[in-house]
Simulated assay, not measured.
Amino acid sequence: MSSPAGPSAPSAPSAPSTTARAEAAFLVAVMAIGSVVMWVISPVAWLWIASRMTSSSQPSLGPYVLVLAGMALTAVVIGKGLGKVNRTHMRLTGRIGDKREARSWNKSMRAERGRTNDRGVLEQVMAVSVSCALVLFGIWFFAFAGSSLPS
Rank of each mutant, 00 (worst) to 15 (best):
D118H: 06
G6C: 12
I49A: 15
T19P: 08
T54L: 07
F142I: 12
L61P: 00
V76K: 06
S147R: 09
V125N: 02
S11Q: 10
W39T: 03
N86P: 07
T93E: 02
T116W: 04
G94Y: 03
V40F: 12
A102T: 04
P43I: 05
V121H: 08
L82M: 13
T88A: 15
A143T: 09
A24T: 08
V67F: 11
M53E: 02
E123L: 15
M71P: 01
A102E: 09
L134G: 10
A25V: 07
W46N: 02
T18F: 10
R52S: 13
H89R: 09
G94I: 00
A5K: 15
W105G: 04
L136D: 00
S151A: 14
T116R: 14
V28T: 07
I49L: 15
I139Q: 03
A29H: 02
N106V: 01
A72K: 02
L122E: 00
G114K: 10
I41R: 01
K99F: 02
K84N: 05
A75C: 06
R52L: 15
A45N: 01
P7S: 08
I41C: 10
F144A: 06
V44N: 01
R115M: 14
L134H: 03
S57C: 08
M38K: 06
A143P: 00
G34N: 02
T19V: 15
S3A: 13
S51N: 13
S60T: 07
G146Q: 05
G62C: 08
R95N: 09
W105T: 05
A69P: 00
S129M: 12
I49M: 14
L82H: 01
A127E: 07
A72Y: 08
L122F: 11
E112Q: 10
D118R: 03
I33P: 00
L47H: 12
V28D: 04
K99V: 13
F141W: 13
S148P: 09
V125Y: 01
G81P: 00
P43F: 04
L68N: 05
I78C: 06
L92Q: 04
A45S: 10
A127F: 14
V28R: 14
P43S: 01
A75L: 05
S51R: 12
R91Q: 15
P16W: 00
L82D: 01
A24R: 01
R91E: 13
R113W: 05
A15E: 02
I33V: 12
S151M: 13
P63C: 12
I33F: 13
L134C: 12
R21T: 03
M71H: 05
V77R: 00
T18K: 11
V135D: 03
A29W: 04
P7C: 09
M31V: 00
M71Y: 09
A111Q: 06
S131A: 15
M1F: 14
G70I: 00
A143Q: 05
M31F: 04
T19C: 13
R113Q: 11
G97P: 01
L68Y: 08
I33W: 02
T116A: 12
V128A: 14
V77L: 13
R103Y: 11
A75V: 01
A111D: 10
M90T: 02
A15Y: 04
A24E: 02
G34C: 07
P10L: 10
P59A: 04
S55N: 07
